[in-house]
């Protein structure tokens, strides 16, 4: 049996034929392509989960000082405001966790690239912070990470997960699509519903440019992690409630690739366009440069 897949359609077919989850397809495919046992793979993913959980804790509990002093400690502010939050305390906690991990990353703390360091806050925030409400076990969350990985692989193969190639849609967009699909599956959605959630999440972020102030993974990257997490939860809820995506997942992924190719290089991580060239950003860049 070959559990390999390159598209969402192939992934869903494998799930339906074998009557297994996306996470299970991913685990079986990884087992057949690498020389490690199923247990070793689960343990390796468990290590990733523990690092994710720890990065949320550190980001929420300890002071974070980024390398330039541009950002830090916004996660704690949002968390403290959670009870009054207009989007509800649950969503506020999820978004604050995304800020937390992104701030830890910007402060040279330890994170798990998912799919990249710049977008590392989205997936842990969504999966870990939803686990309490649904009583997900750590083993459930490990499955969620395998499912997220499967969705990310399809996007990496057919489009891109690099801001330099595809803009922010390729980083936060991909992370959000991965988180949306994984949460949908963890909440009992079918593989088709999971990819519907992923499709909607990616559609919502399509076209977002990568325009880091002073070329650093701080502004606007950290707050976009929070947006990516909120978007993932919204799209998982829509898919679970029966909302469908007009454009199927694979077509959305191809559209993302083509938008990335049309995107001017100034808007792809080079800090030569968008927010990076606003007067304020240029002043910040000059200050950082002068200090060093």
């Amino acid at each position: 049996m070959n559990y390999g897949f390159s598209t969402g359609e192939e992934l869903i077919r494998l799930c339906e034929n074998e009557k297994i989850t996306i996470a299970e397809v991913m685990l079986r495919h990884e087992t057949e392509t690498c020389e490690r046992s199923r247990d070793e793979l689960v343990n390796e993913m468990f290590e990733n989960l523990m690092t994710m959980q720890e990065s949320i804790r550190i980001g929420l509990e300890e002071d974070q000082e980024t390398m330039t002093g541009l950002a830090g400690n916004n996660a704690e502010k949002l968390l403290a405001y959670a009870e009054k939050s207009n989007m509800g305390p649950d969503m506020a906690r999820i978004c604050s966790a995304a800020l937390a991990v992104a701030e830890v990353n910007a402060s040279m703390g330890k994170i798990v690239a998912a799919p990249t360091a710049g977008s590392s806050g989205v997936i842990p925030a969504v999966l870990v912070m939803c686990s309490e409400k649904h009583s997900f076990t750590d083993r459930d969350l490990v499955n969620g990470l395998f499912a997220a990985g499967a969705i990310g692989i399809i996007i990496a193969k057919n489009a891109s997960i690099s801001g330099a190639e595809g803009g922010c849609q390729a980083e936060i967009g991909t992370a959000s699509a991965m988180a949306a699909g994984a949460l949908t599956e963890l909440c009992g959605g079918t593989p088709a519903q999971a990819l519907t959630a992923s499709a909607m999440a990616l559609k919502n972020i399509l076209g977002l440019v990568c325009d880091p102030v002073a070329g650093l993974v701080e502004c606007p990257c950290i707050k976009r992690n929070a947006m990516g997490a909120a978007n993932a939860v919204l799209c998982a809820d829509m898919a679970l409630s029966g909302v469908t995506s007009i454009i199927p997942f694979d077509e959305v992924v191809n559209a993302m690739r083509s938008v990335g190719r049309m995107m001017n290089v100034d808007l792809r991580e080079t800090a030569k366009g968008g927010l990076a060239v606003t007067p304020t950003a240029l002043e910040i860049a000059k200050r950082i440069n002068d200090e060093n």
Binding site: M67, K110, V112, A113, A117, F146, K157, M178, L216, V217
Partner: peptide, 14 residues
């Protein structure tokens, strides 16, 4: 891709 190319590596940022 390996699943650990996408969920991983564990690393110090940014």
């Amino acid at each position: 891709f390996s699943v650990f190319d996408i969920i991983g590596p564990r690393m110090v940022g940014p």
